[in-house]
Design a protein around this nucleic acid. Structure first.
Lengths: 171, 171
DNA sequence: CTGATTGCAAACACTTTGCAGCAGA
DNA sequence: TCTGCTGCAAAGTGTTTGCAATCAG
């Protein structure tokens, strides 16, 4: 009860330095553990570390960035494990995968299942997140018209932000 | 004026069989030629064949499928040329690239710049296209609120279609 | 103790690129 | 003729997978 070992599995695997110094996360951790239990899967230190790193992110992030983040945090987890865990977190309903381009995909913490929408500036690359009740309502109406049961959605608007408009004046 | 050679460049390049048997397309061809002219690029037989194949598609299609289509049509164009031409068609405003997953991207003829939206069944894989004026209006309102100038958008709703709902009853 | 998990590196699949030869304008 | 285009195959990239060693429950 004194160490965090009752929450986080012992973190000694093949490499020593990796270590979670704190109780990594709040109720999300519980969600993940419950999900894993249901799948007869294990809550390993690697998974704990990855979840911790994920929960530090704001908005969208790439898998590769997360790999770097882990290194910077002093955690150790192979690229393969990161990818595998991201998929699990998605299945657990904690993350959502988002597609913008054909190079890579992005992830976003959703936890509750809320979905965010984006304005993406094609000039500056800036991504503005927004959330709209009207959009959700419209979505449900459209689904109803098509006998479709919505689970999630993504709404990406491509264009120019104020800044991008300036940068792009040549065009 | 009797042969189509005044529209389509001679189709003899390295391999003989490839040949466009007909005037391949309507005004879209003109759009593409004009675009190419503006870019000091050439309207080659390969590009004509690819445009022809593209205009036969309905809805979304993958680049790889198009490569196959070309073979089936008796046209010959290397994979590289197909990919390069798809990019040009996109720049010309004839095609739009769409991202659903991290495996590949999809294309869709837009020609006018209209954008379609999709209901995607996560169980059956079915994709229902729809178009909504209300959505476009809402989009513009949202952009206005954020000082954003919209150029295009994609709206993907994930969920279960009637058929998918049945298939998915186990869940 | 035993099945699940990890790390590594090889495998993958889609897409892009370098280059030498060919061809549209 | 002079750019620009094509095909080929090699290179790129993000992601997945096979496998032996290792660990969580």
């Amino acid at each position: 009860m004194t160490t965090d070992s009752n929450i986080i599995p012992s973190l000694h695997r093949r490499t020593p330095p990796a270590r979670l110094q704190h109780t990594p996360f709040e109720p999300v951790c519980a969600i993940f553990r419950q999900y894993l239990r249901g799948q007869k899967q294990k809550f390993t230190p690697e998974r704990a570390m990855i979840l911790d790193a994920v929960l530090r992110k704001q908005g969208l992030f790439e898998a590769e960035i997360l790999v770097d983040d882990l290194k910077k945090l002093g955690y150790r987890a192979s690229r393969a494990t990161v990818y595998r865990t991201l998929n699990h977190l998605q299945d657990a309903g904690i993350l959502k995968q988002v597609f913008f381009d054909n190079k890579q995909s992005y992830f976003e913490v959703i936890v509750g299942g809320q979905s965010n929408d984006y304005l993406i500036c094609i000039a500056s690359g800036k991504v503005i997140e927004f959330s709209s009740q009207r959009l959700k309502k419209l979505r449900d109406e459209i689904c109803a018209e098509h006998g479709f049961e919505p689970i999630g959605h993504q709404f990406h608007i491509y264009g120019l932000c104020a800044e991008g408009r300036c940068k792009n004046d040549k065009k």
